[in-house]
Design a protein around this nucleic acid. Structure first.
Lengths: 184, 184
DNA sequence: AACGATACGGAGAGTCTCTCCGTTTGGCAA
DNA sequence: TTGCCAAACGGAGAGACTCTCCGTATCGTT
């Protein structure tokens, strides 16, 4: 890649990160181009679709997901607390930007989505949590990581779209947790 | 209301119903206006926002909700089957149009939403189901109808956005059902 | 220094939302 | 019936956003 191209690419991604944080993932792309001091053509050449740009913005975010999963798995307490803690972490991770939950959860299972790799990171984090619970023998046998991602993602989507406070989300996650753990 | 106004109002609603069914709730409003043989101004005078139009389109739909709830409550079988049957009915009701689940579930609790009355119908249908289960003593005491609407609405939203087939939705609903019923 | 490939950028077409305002129409009162 | 005017119409067009095309500028190599 030519030096000037690389420079523009980087500036666009950095600008997009800021704008997305301020205005959500629906922010006008032309505005991002203008703030990055490039023409719209340049932006669209580097990132043919909005999702391609979002994907690039999320590169750094991927690491934080893995890290947060480690932390959630290291927490003290019973399986229910572990699971609830993870659910809240997960909702927080995918809700960083307005519109994020819908975008990420909707792309799960879509093999053509530009943010596919991001979804895979999320799904495998859920897999790790399930593995742990399965080892403890407290998990319903018929729940898989994709289903779990969709369930928690669904709650996060609703919370995002209704601007629900954390306190209102918690009981929803409790229902999920109880549904996912074996009857005791 | 003047006769010509009433005529246009009716034609717009009827046209909108068709277009929404074909193209989902994101269909361009100007297209609806054109197909209804009115100017955009007329459409926007009658329905200042998209949601106002959707609200009008849904007038008939409300009755079908009540009816479907009756039917679900009349079904044979244990509480889990009852609940699952209702969940599937509910998902079907709010998923009639693409984008419907997000729109309806997102508006729950929004006192200013034009489709508020529709949400209330949905929430009270869930209330009726909960009442029934509560009477049977099989319900977690800390679950209310708004939470239930959001949980099932969340699943429906994800299913809608990922084009999930019914078979993939069912296990998600099972988790919810198990989470909502008391441990036995 | 010259040249070809690469990348730029902005004008502008296409789409959708929404408004303003000159024109038309419905319904009532004389 | 006729005339009036409030009510309603409708479409031109402004504004916002997406996306493309192509003449121009820049890079990096020979």
């Amino acid at each position: 890649m030519r030096a000037d191209a690389q420079r523009n690419y980087d500036r666009i991604v950095e600008t997009a990160r800021e704008v997305f944080r301020e205005k959500g993932y629906d922010a006008p792309l032309d505005e991002i181009a203008k703030k990055a001091d490039v023409g719209p053509g340049t932006l669209y050449r580097h990132f043919p679709s909005r999702d391609d740009l979002i994907d690039a913005v999320m590169k750094a975010w991927v690491d934080s997901v893995t890290e947060a999963t480690d932390k959630a798995l290291a927490r003290e307490g019973g399986p229910r607390e572990l699971l609830l803690g993870w659910f809240e972490t997960y909702v927080g991770l995918i809700s960083a930007h307005k519109g994020g939950p819908a975008k990420l959860t909707g792309a799960i299972g879509d093999k053509d989505s530009p943010i596919r790799s991001k979804c895979q990171v999320l799904v495998s984090s859920n897999r790790r949590v399930l593995d742990r619970l399965q080892a403890d023998g407290v998990l319903r046998p018929d729940v898989d990581e994709v289903q779990l991602s969709r369930l928690v993602g669904g709650v996060a989507t609703v919370a995002d779209q209704s601007d629900l406070p954390t306190a209102a989300v918690r009981p929803l996650l409790e229902v999920l947790a109880d549904g996912v753990l074996v009857r005791s």
